[in-house]
Amino acid sequence: MIDDDTLPGTERFDPRATHLVVLTGMSGGGKTVALRALEDLEFYCVDNLPPALLPQLVDAVGRGAGRRRRIAVGVDVRNRGADFTHLPTILSELAATGVQPHLIFLDCRNDVLLKRYSETRRRHPLATRGMSLADAIGKERRLLRPLMAIAEKVIDSSELNVHQLRRLVATGYAQATKGLTLMFQSFAFKRGLPLDSDFVFDARCLPNPHWQPRLRPLTGKDAPVREYLDNEPLVAEYLADTARWLDAWLPRFEQDDRSYVTIAIGCTGGRHRSVYLVEQLAARYRDHRESVLTFHRELD
C-alpha cells in the first residue's frame, strides 16, 4: 500500500500540457474505481483502449478545438500480446511530442484477488476453459510484470476498500485541477462516521422519506424522493444554511493552500436525506467550481 499523500507526477502537472494517465494492473485490483475517480476530476476517460490507439486518442481529444488536457485510459489483459510489448514505446513517442504520460499500476495480493472474485462471482478475463482462477491470476501477473517494472507508481490495493482507493486517487490528482476539489459524501450514522471527513453535517432532523412506504425502497437520487424533499420547507432551509456556511469558510481553506476538502452529510440510513443533500450541494458548486466529487457510502 502506498504511504504518501500524492500520486506520482502530480507535483509536475503543467496546466498548459496534455497529460495522459494510463491505468493498468491486476484484474480486480481497482482500475475501474481509479478511472471513475479521475472521471470525477474532469479527466476524459476511456476504458480498455488498445495501446496502439493512444496517439489517435490524444490527437482527437487533447489537440482539437475543444481540447481536453487531462486524459485517463484503462489498459488491461483484455488487450493482449503485442499491445503490452509496445506500450512503453508508444508512451515514449507521445512524450517526445510534448504529452506528459503517467503510468500507474494497480496491484493486489493473489489471496485478496481470489477472495474478491469469489465474493463477486465475476469471471477472470484469462480464465478460459480448463484454467483455474489461481492459474489465471498467475498468468496475468507474468504478462503484466514488464509494465509494473516501468510504472511511475505501484498502488497495492490489498488493504484498501473502494472508498479509500477512490479518495487516494482523487486526492492525488486534485492538484492537477484548478482550485479546491470538493468531495461531498453521504453516509449512515448507524454505521459510524467517515474517518476521512473534514466537515460533518447531521441531517437526521429533517423529514424522513423512509416513513413513506412508496419511497422507502428508493434513494435520494430517485425523482419521487427528490420531489418529496423539494417540497419540504425545512429541507430547503437546511440546504441554504449549509451552503451559506460553506461559502463563508471554503475560501479560507483555499487561502491555506488546501487542494481537497471532504464534506460528509449523514442521516439514519444513508439512503434518502443525506444522498439528496449531497447531490443538491454538488450540483450547486459544480456551477462555479471545476472539481466537485460525490460519493454515497451506503450506495456505492
Score class of each variant (00 low, 15 high):
Asp5Tyr: 12
Pro8Cys: 12
Gly9Phe: 08
Thr10Cys: 15
Phe13Pro: 08
Pro15Glu: 09
Ala17Trp: 11
Thr18Arg: 13
His19Phe: 00
Val22Cys: 06
Val22Gln: 13
Gly25Asn: 00
Gly28Lys: 10
Gly29Ile: 07
Ala34Phe: 04
Ala34Ile: 13
Ala37Pro: 12
Leu38Lys: 10
Glu39Arg: 13
Phe43Trp: 14
Asp47Leu: 01
Asn48Glu: 01
Leu49Lys: 00
Leu53Asp: 13
Leu54Trp: 00
Gln56Glu: 10
Asp59Leu: 03
Gly66Val: 08
Arg70Val: 12
Arg70Gln: 11
Ile71Lys: 01
Asn79Lys: 08
Asn79His: 07
Asp83Gln: 14
Phe84Lys: 05
Leu87Thr: 11
Pro88Ala: 08
Leu91Glu: 02
Glu93Gly: 13
Leu94Gln: 09
Ala96Met: 07
Thr97His: 02
Gln100Asp: 06
Gln100Cys: 07
Pro101Gln: 04
Leu103His: 02
Ile104Val: 14
Leu106Cys: 03
Leu114Lys: 08
Ser118Gly: 13
Arg123Thr: 10
Arg123Tyr: 03
His124Phe: 00
Pro125Gln: 06
Thr128Ser: 07
Arg129Asn: 06
Ser132Val: 04
Ser132Ile: 06
Lys139Pro: 01
Arg141Val: 01
Leu143Phe: 06
Arg145Ile: 01
Leu147Arg: 00
Glu152Lys: 11
Lys153Cys: 02
Val154Tyr: 00
Ile155Ser: 02
Asn161Phe: 10
Val162Lys: 02
Gln164Glu: 14
Val169Asn: 05
Ala170Ser: 08
Thr171Cys: 13
Gly172His: 13
Gly172Tyr: 12
Gly172Leu: 13
Tyr173Glu: 03
Tyr173Arg: 06
Ala176Glu: 07
Thr177Ala: 12
Lys178Thr: 15
Gly179Phe: 02
Thr181His: 02
Leu182Trp: 00
Leu182Thr: 01
Met183Ile: 10
Met183Phe: 12
Phe184Asp: 05
Phe184Lys: 12
Ala188Lys: 04
Phe189Pro: 10
Phe189Lys: 04
Lys190Tyr: 15
Lys190Asn: 04
Arg191Pro: 05
Gly192Asn: 11
Gly192Tyr: 14
Leu193Trp: 12
Leu195Trp: 00
Asp196Thr: 04
Asp198Phe: 03
Ala203Met: 01
Ala203Glu: 00
Arg204Ala: 00
Cys205Phe: 07
Leu206Trp: 00
Leu206Val: 01
Pro207Asn: 11
His210Gly: 03
Trp211Gly: 12
Pro213Ile: 03
Leu218Asn: 02
Leu218Tyr: 07
Thr219Ser: 15
Thr219Gly: 13
Lys221Thr: 08
Pro224Asn: 06
Arg226Ile: 00
Leu229Asp: 05
Asp230Leu: 08
Asp230Cys: 05
Pro233Thr: 05
Glu237Met: 14
Arg244Gln: 15
Trp245Val: 14
Leu250Tyr: 00
Leu250Trp: 10
Arg252Lys: 06
Phe253His: 15
Ala264Pro: 12
Gly266Leu: 02
Thr268Gly: 08
His272Arg: 13
Val275Pro: 12
Val275Ala: 06
Leu277Asn: 03
Glu279Leu: 05
Glu279Gln: 15
Gln280Ala: 11
Gln280Met: 12
Arg284Gln: 03
Arg286Tyr: 05
Val292Thr: 05
Val292Met: 08
Leu293Ile: 10
Glu298Val: 01
Asp300Glu: 15
